[in-house]
Each structure stands twice: as C-alpha cells, then as structure tokens.
Nucleic acid binder design. Structure first.
Length: 260
DNA sequence: ATGCCACCGTACCGGTGA
C-alpha cells in the first residue's frame, strides 16, 4: 500500500507530469493540493484512464484539493469541520475499507498565513486549531489514519536550508510550529522524520532566485500517521527528481509504503 | 529589498502563493 501527497500547483498546468508520475510511482492513494480548479474543470479523464478514481474539492482560481485512488473510497468528507463560514477548499478526507481494515486518508492544504500581523495569519492559526480538534476526533476511532499534505509549516531548523531567511515568515513562526507539535502530540508520527534524521531533506524549492539549483529548500509537506499505520510503515520516499522536470511544481511528491 | 517566478482568471495585469 503506497500513499502519496503532492502539492501540484495547478492540475491543469501539470496534467502531463501528473500522469507520468502516477504511471511511474503507481501510488494506491494520491493526495493532491493546490489543484487551482473547480470540480467541473478538473482533468479527470486522463487520470481515470490510468485506473484511478477521482474525488475533488476545488474552487475557482486557487486552493483546491483532491484524492486519487485505485479503489473508490467508501465515504468522502469535503471541508474541514468546525467553521461553516470557511469558503476555502483546503481539506478532503476519504475512508477506504481494504482487507477488513478501515483506512482514513486526508489531503490537507493548510493556509500559508503570510504576511504576519494580518487576518491571514489569524486564519492559519484558527485553521490549525480546527485541524487539531478534528484529528482528535479521528484518532478516537483507532482507524488507520494518514493526514497528508502541504502543512505550510517548517517543523524544525533542520527542515530549512537557511533558517535565518524564514524567521519573519508565517511558515516558521513559533506559533505555527507549536500548533504543529500539538497536532503531532495527539499521538501522530511525522513519517519522514521517523525514517530519517538526515539534514537537507526538503519537499519545496521556490521558483525564484535559483532556489532549486542551490538546494535552498524547506520541508513543509508532511505525512502524519496514527500508531496503527506506523506499525505497518515500511519506508518513506521524497520524489526529489520530479523537481527537475520541465515546468515543475515547486513541491515534490512525498510517499509512504505500508506493509500489505 | 515585499522583488525574484509561476499559477489562475477573462487577461495583456492583478491576486495569490511561500
């Protein structure tokens, strides 16, 4: 069982790369973020032609998340619970029933929160509180749980090439990092860090100022897993080579392999 | 340095991102 997450930065601009990656990596479940498409405009046909079921939660212009899976989910939840007035499409969750197990996977596009001192940062922190509350509810079920996505939070200094450059950024604020720690401390595991303490483990490189060429990256795409999933974890992988493709997303896919 | 680059919409620029 292979589960992946990828902030694709526009599914219509990246559809050929997405199909090439799906064919090569063959994830059982792929979580996408920043599809930047309404549901009706999502290019589902070429993805379905590869044998994938498609569930989307899009919006016009920006944001938007999706779940691609070889097996159709039994249930789908669109939108993060806790605020009926939230109009941004940043959360979609599916439940799969596989070999008698219940597997819940969420595709998360956590708010960026920049600039500091604005309602955008308040929205980020409030959204994180809602995510913590919802994750607590999910963990009570003791299902297999994978919270995957672009968290827009740099957990630790080891997760950024140039920490000083991010001190004034919402992604590296003490409040953002503390909220992520509280989420993890509910009983989740950061799958990538559980498998490797290596520095220069990044998932995002800015398009600007030659960040990719200089390996000036950050690790902000995370797979947070429940104890039931951690027991079955075989390996994780960061698809770094995808950043070197033509017209790449600024993020690369992150994957976890589970036994059976 | 609030730009560098890239996406989207109804578009030849402004909003948004990280």
């Amino acid at each position: 069982m292979l589960i992946a997450t990828w902030n694709i930065n526009g599914v219509k601009a990246r559809i050929d790369s997405l199909c090439a990656w799906l064919e090569a990596a063959s994830p059982d479940i792929a979580c996408l973020q920043e599809i930047k498409s309404v549901d009706e405009g999502f290019p589902r046909a070429p993805i379905e032609a590869l044998g994938y079921h498609v569930e989307t939660f899009g919006q016009k212009g920006f944001n938007g998340v999706a779940l691609l899976s070889k097996q159709a989910p039994a249930e789908v939840l669109r939108g993060l619970p806790g605020d009926d007035t939230d109009e941004q499409s940043r959360y979609i969750e599916g439940l799969w029933k596989i070999d008698g197990r219940r597997l819940r996977v969420a595709s998360i596009y956590l708010p960026n929160g920049n600039p500091l001192g604005t309602e955008k940062f308040d929205y980020k922190l409030a959204w994180m509180e809602r995510l913590i509350a919802h994750a607590g509810t999910l963990l009570e079920n003791e299902d297999d749980l994978v919270l995957a996505g672009d968290y827009n939070v740099i957990p630790m200094p080891i997760d950024v090439a140039n920490p000083e450059a991010w001190l004034g950024d919402a992604l590296f604020q003490p409040e953002s990092r503390a909220a992520l720690r509280r989420l993890v401390n509910l009983g989740l595991t950061d799958a990538v860090r559980a498998c490797s303490e290596a520095p220069e483990t990044y998932t995002f490189w800015d398009y600007q100022a030659g960040a990719w060429q200089k390996n000036n990256g950050i690790r902000i795409d995370h797979l947070l897993i429940s104890p039931e999933v951690q027991e079955r974890m075989v390996s994780v992988g960061i698809e770094k080579h995808v950043r070197g493709w033509e017209k790449p997303s600024d993020h690369v896919p992150v994957m976890i392999q589970l036994a059976a």
